[in-house]
Design a protein around this nucleic acid. Sequence first.
DNA 1: CCACTTTGGCAACACTGTTGCAAAAGCGCA
DNA 2: TGCGCTTTTGCAACAGTGTTGCCAAAGTGG
Lengths: 353, 353
Amino acid sequence: MNRTDPGANLAALRDHNTAVVLGLLRCAGPAGASRAELATRAGLTPQAVSKITSRLRDTGLAAEAGRRASTGGKPATALRLVPGAAHAVGVHLDRDALTVTLVDLTGTETATRTAPLDFGAGAEAVLDAVAGAVTALLADHATGDVLGAGVAVPGPLDHRSGVLHRVTGFPRWDGFPLRDALGERLGLPVVVDKDTNAAALGLALRTPRATGSFAYLHLGTGLGAGLVLDGGVHRGPRTGAGEFGHQVVQVDGPLCACGDRGCLEALCLAAVTAGDTARAARLLGIGALNLVRLLDIDSVLLGGGAVLARPTAYVDGVRDVLGGAVPVDVVPEGARVVVGGAAELVLAPLFGV
Amino acid sequence: MNRTDPGANLAALRDHNTAVVLGLLRCAGPAGASRAELATRAGLTPQAVSKITSRLRDTGLAAEAGRRASTGGKPATALRLVPGAAHAVGVHLDRDALTVTLVDLTGTETATRTAPLDFGAGAEAVLDAVAGAVTALLADHATGDVLGAGVAVPGPLDHRSGVLHRVTGFPRWDGFPLRDALGERLGLPVVVDKDTNAAALGLALRTPRATGSFAYLHLGTGLGAGLVLDGGVHRGPRTGAGEFGHQVVQVDGPLCACGDRGCLEALCLAAVTAGDTARAARLLGIGALNLVRLLDIDSVLLGGGAVLARPTAYVDGVRDVLGGAVPVDVVPEGARVVVGGAAELVLAPLFGV
DNA sequence: CCACTTTGGCAACACTGTTGCAAAAGCGCA
DNA sequence: TGCGCTTTTGCAACAGTGTTGCCAAAGTGG
């Protein structure tokens, strides 16, 4: 038996409950929620919620927001997050583009910039570009409290240490300590994760009534997945989870770049290249079906360049294979889901995710 | 964002820490562990551990077990679980056999009975058989404290409500409330789960230094999996996770009983029937590789009738496909892993699993 | 105008793990 | 043998959590 969750003390208890309340407040949105509502939803007593929200108001993270209509007694006082109380930077490093964004405590994007990028130019050049873009973004929209920067990168890496592994096609990045290097440049705490995981995290926090488990399938220059199980991103012990594209769906099929045969990614991308969207969508659906059956997830969300170019075709094709077992949709934010999710890497701990 | 883990109060904090300490004691085995060791491992202060273990000694769950050798100071007092302080019953309902077992607090099997069973005979007959076997088992090995009975069943069901879904080939069981019906007969709390989940849980608790994530692959009359992610059994919202056998690995392949084409189970079982163990093992390995890549798990354990009949052939075949990515082994307990795991369904909450 | 309901705060409380200090019990060296 | 040192454990007082009991505030509905 492993012990990943060790003993907890009173401070941990307080932080946990505070995160739960903050999460409920975030879900409630600008309309807010009353103390009594929070108590019911969190399973705490009203008094406990009163104490917790009192601390939050002292910190400035939450504030009262008017009265609700009465339901037969004293009208409730709505509490809501103060959006400007904290900010986070999101960075999306793609093969040919750099996107940076600034989000507030509620996850709303305040400002976004995009610039072309040559990811293959090496660490120094890319770090310069990122630092420049982030500094300019912060200068234009000066805010007091920037908690840190979340960075979404394609390819394998170690989430905890923030070190890149072998980024396919970019050997110069092998083993680069991105988190520490960028953290030093920016003078901010930095969190690094795979682009698919960032997107999945963003969706988990963003969707108003997100279900407990879902998969984000990203079909772009590659094919990968971000998995949210029981409300949290499943990264695996080595941040290697989500290798959705290299599942074998055709034993002894065509050779894939990874060396195996019949990988879903190879088949799917071949269909995309051939312009056979129907076949690509069907193959994507087969992979999704395998995943749904193995993990019993609640819904499937599609994204990535290929999907966003022909959204309805892919949604219909995948739905057709899944046969209504679970809902299928395209991510509402489109390509922005990744950079938004990157920023959420910084905010998520506040909400206990 | 979902809120599956709501607010916690002091009682929850105490229970959590108690479970952590009990889990560590169970890992320590008969040799036990000192208070200082427990404190380090749990991340608690020695005083907190002293208080917690004091409560455990009052309850009778733990006891002192002699002195350790000194390491330069006062020698430590070893604490260990009292095996007989609590017992649990495990029931394994298979298509043609019934196995019941009695385990103590440490998960050690005290007594086991096996009898032939006609699962298709319907609920009443099977319940009679189970009740008879359990009563006889308890009469022979009278112990004071039996916490409950865990039941492992093949086929889909709802773990939380204990209601069976459609058990393949046995329509008479559709929608049967097994947990409540058996609970009433036995006069004990009953927990129901899929056989593969029970096995995985047993392995998670049993293995001395279990890694955080692994998969138990069961190749018998069907092909299924039990998944342990981050130390806990992943069942999915509807207890539907682990449908490992119906992943498509051959697009447009041969028809499977489930209606799809190219399912791993159909291909694998065909190879088993044809006596082509090498092919069956290779196919199993391909499925395992898909799973390892998707979830980044630490190890793969094989079980089930077909595997246990030719263990080395399967282990070698699967290892060959996985290429050393993760360790592969056959479950040490053999077929008993399921009934042992069934009993652990009852004990697991004590240890916070 | 008066019950009644609902919301939320104040004060006292019970219980958690924590801190400070001391005793117990061994080792090692003079 | 005596002394200092280390390590383990316990007692007592403490800080801080959520809880309970009670009550004021502020609406609705008769």
